[in-house]
């Protein structure tokens, strides 16, 4: 199950972040209900839209120390996590996400094409808790 409900979907067989859009415009927000607002627009109900699955690396970093709670450290000893900021193709919006396991800073460069995938954030006895992650398109399987 999603670690937090309502942020991504795999409904059409393809993982997508769920964003908000001012109807009829190119103003997007993520997460839909926590992404701020366009002050030029009056009160408006954002429409729910799936965001581009692909984008390009804006920047990246690797966290060599385990983040504190509410992050859940899954590997003992801690394995450094790499985080990419990816500018979505259509929305021109930079979105953070962990990279999939095995992707490190040596595999990334600014401008590289990335795609969204759904992966395990952490697990307990009952289930796997899922989140979006980034991986290089070149390393992607089904492309």
């Amino acid at each position: 199950m999603p670690a937090v409900e309502g942020l991504f979907t795999t409904d059409d067989g393809e993982p997508r972040l769920i964003g908000g859009r001012v109807p009829g415009t190119e103003s997007y927000f993520f997460p839909k209900h926590l992404g701020g607002a366009d002050p030029r627009v009056g009160p408006v109900e954002l429409e729910e839209v799936p965001l581009s699955r692909r984008g390009r690396v804006w920047s990246y970093t690797t966290s060599h120390y385990p983040p504190p709670p509410p992050f859940v450290v899954t590997a003992e000893p801690y394995e450094p996590i790499t985080i990419a900021a990816v500018e979505l193709e259509r929305e021109k919006m930079v979105v953070l996400g962990q990279c999939t396991a095995g992707v490190g800073p040596e595999d990334l460069e600014v401008g590289m094409e990335m795609e969204l995938t759904i992966d395990t954030l952490y697990s307990d006895d009952d289930c796997d808790y899922l989140v979006w992650k980034w991986r290089p398109v070149a390393a992607g399987s089904e492309g």
């Binding site: 997460p31 804006w58 920047s59 970093t61 983040p67 504190p68 992050f71 985080i83 954030l121």
Partner: peptide
Amino acid sequence: IDWLRFHLVGATNPVYFGLHARR
């Protein structure tokens, strides 16, 4: 949102500093 960035991404403050430095 401050809780979400830690929980879902592990984005500590130095993560943002690292992103800007790399950029």
